[in-house]
């Protein structure tokens, strides 16, 4: 079973939480996360369950005007 992380398939971890997924993906800090186009606050990753085919967006600071 897979989820989409930044548009690419990624294996869904057994525990099925967003926290577990992020530990597996290990994105460089700092980052922020959206699940299925909804913002997920950092303190709630452990409580957030991820399902197959969910879309996870992990974003980082970048330049902007």
């Amino acid at each position: 079973m897979f989820v989409l992380v930044n548009g690419k398939p990624y294996p869904l971890p057994q525990s099925g939480t967003l926290a577990a997924l992020l530990r597996s993906v290990s994105p460089p800090a700092p980052f922020a996360v959206a699940l299925n186009e909804e913002f997920i606050a950092r303190g709630t990753y452990d409580d957030c369950v991820v399902h197959p085919n969910d879309r996870i967006d992990i974003v980082h600071p970048t330049v902007g005007g």
Partner: peptide, 15 residues
């Protein structure tokens, strides 16, 4: 002003 984007590997202007 700054912005947000998916990580771009090797990009100097992010991350």
């Amino acid at each position: 002003t700054v912005s947000l984007r998916h990580q771009m590997s090797g990009a100097k202007e992010s991350g």
